[in-house]
Design a protein around this nucleic acid. Structure first.
Length: 492
RNA sequence: GGCGUUUUGGCCGAGUGGCUAGGCAGAGGUCUGCAAAACCUCGUACAGCGGUUCGAAUCCGCUAGACGCCUCCA
């Protein structure tokens, strides 16, 4: 039987601001959409945290036996430099600066994005559509919204009429704001805007002469507005209403608010049942962001090449660090915190490696079944990975006590313990065991040490010892090779 | 200025109206030839003030700080 039938999953819904029992539209199936990156620069650790948070969601839903269609877009066009909607396309701007083709920028940073997420062991989504691949769909939505009178065209651009929409719907339902407030509080622009109201957002922007990324449309050549792609792609692949929509907290307003507005006008239904927002990663007391330069790149952590780091940290240690915080909490990044996390992660891995050395008994002195359920309970409670990890450390303690024979475990319980630990550590948290790599490094070190000791023996003309080292290594399949430059070795 | 979130012990971070987070660091002990590891025990907590309650770190109010959004942003 599928686990979701016996485990009641609760998800915090940003829309209702409360934890709700998760019930998918189609039993056993989940449609999930997550706003992906704009590929105009290297993905930083803050971005990674969000995608990792939803990777955890994806992994746990699968663990519960759900069939999940996970859609995450690549924004390769359409994001404007700043609002007032007068800016320049981000991708095009970067391309001009670097004197390369826009799609070259897209390609470079898409590759970087994929490589980084792979290193940190995120599973690829089921579908990863691009904005440029869905221009036609976006134009169709604009036509529809225009036909329904909720948008207007000015000089080859099309804007969504927020105030008109707000007459019958609540623009601000997700972010908890009232349009009236923002009308009063919006800074007066220079009056050059062609929008009826500052709150209106672009569905289509006319391309200026120099603009390289452009597509033909009923309103002339241009490019889509920056909220439209998610509406186009999510509904195309998941339906007019789907189960889960995720993204960073900073996208709640205006991006997700606009998505709701667009969908409600076009399809007359709420697009999403469960809105999930991942919280920010904080560096130096402020959120990581490309625009402010306050960020750290994942590769800098893996190589240790950043002045705030004392050393390099593995992707898994980094992942563990982030999993120790709940996805809806702000997380502070620091070297000390990362070091502490790394030690904990190593301790966990050691226990997993030690599972094989446990001797089985006839009865169990610990309640494994109850422990297992506590692991599921933690994750069922809005994906509470920190509590799950606390439970895994409980298991670490079990393993150590069993090794010291201070507790006993039956064969059946041992299987449960082992399987559950493996499931949660590897499949759900997505951690990887680096011990093989480490062991390899360490073995190399050991052989080098023996070579050094053999050299000392040879220098002392202690041929018996030096030959003994060489021959016994040979028996183990390690051949020493004495050359002019010193001794090397190979493993057969 | 508006909206929202948050404030937990040396550090990172959970959580709940009455009982335990967990990790890292620290102290004592067991074990050990010594050490390490492991195990056991321990400490200093719930921003401040007031209220509700038999009882609040947990609910409410005020004050202070921090953060996020209000402009692209994961």
């Amino acid at each position: 039987m599928e686990l979701y039938k016996t485990n009641q999953l609760k998800i915090y819904n940003s829309l209702s601001k409360s934890k709700e029992i998760f019930k998918p539209i189609v039993e056993g199936n989940v449609g999930m959409y997550v706003c992906g990156p704009t590929v105009y620069s290297n993905v930083h650790l803050g971005n990674v945290r969000t995608f990792m948070s939803f990777d955890l969601v994806f992994r746990y839903l699968k663990q519960l036996g759900f069939k999940v269609r996970y859609v995450r877009n690549i924004t390769d066009a359409g994001h404007l430099e700043n609002d007032a909607d007068e800016g320049e396309d981000r991708i095009a701007k970067k391309a001009r600066i670097e004197k390369i083709e826009p799609m070259e920028v897209v390609q470079r940073y898409t590759v970087d994005f994929h490589e980084t997420l792979q290193k940190i062991n995120n599973l690829p989504p089921s579908i990863e559509p691009t904005a440029t691949g869905h221009i036609v769909e976006q134009i169709e939505i604009i036509k529809d919204i225009l036909a329904k009178g909720m948008a207007y065209e000015v000089n080859g651009s099309v804007y969504f009429d927020v105030l008109k929409y707000n007459e019958t719907e609540h623009y601000g339902i997700l972010s908890g704001r009232n349009i009236e407030d923002s009308v009063h509080n919006t800074r007066e622009l220079d009056g050059q805007s062609e929008k009826k109201n500052p709150q209106d957002f672009a569905l289509w922007k006319r391309a200026e002469e120099k603009h390289i990324m452009r597509w033909p449309s009923p309103w002339g050549e241009g490019f889509p507005g920056w909220h439209l792609e998610c509406t186009a792609m999510s509904t195309k692949y998941l339906g007019e209403t789907f189960d889960i929509h995720g993204g960073g907290m900073d996208l709640k307003f205006p991006h997700h608010e606009c998505e709701i507005a667009q969908s409600k006008v076009k399809n007359k239904v709420n697009p999403v049942n469960y809105w999930m927002h991942a919280n920010m990663l904080i560096l130096n007391g402020q959120k990581m962001a490309k625009s402010t330069g306050n960020y750290i790149l994942p590769n800098e952590i893996f190589t240790g090449e950043n002045k705030i780091l004392s050393k390099a940290f593995s992707p898994s240690a980094t992942r563990f660090f982030m999993m120790q915080a709940h996805y809806r909490s702000v997380l502070d990044f620091s070297n000390d915190a990362l070091e502490a996390a790394e030690k904990g992660y190593m301790k966990l891995m050691e226990a997993l490696n030690n599972l094989e050395n446990i001797e089985l008994g006839l009865v169990s002195s610990i309640n494994i079944g109850e422990w297992k359920q506590r692991c599921y309970d933690a994750m069922n409670d809005d994906f509470n990975s920190p509590v799950l990890i606390a439970n895994l450390f409980e298991a670490v303690k079990y393993v150590n006590l069993l090794l010291e024979k201070k507790e006993t475990i039956s064969a059946a319980d041992f299987e449960t313990l082992k399987n559950t630990m493996n499931i949660f550590v590897y499949d759900v948290l997505g951690l990887q065991n680096n011990s093989e790599e480490n062991a390899c490094d360490k073995l190399n070190g050991v052989v080098e040490m023996l070579i050094k000791m053999r050299k000392e023996a040879r220098d002392n003309r202690d041929w018996a010892l030096s030959d003994k080292i060489r021959d016994e290594l040979a028996v183990l399949g390690i051949q020493l090779k004495d050359g002019k430059e010193g001794t090397t070795f190979s493993v057969n």
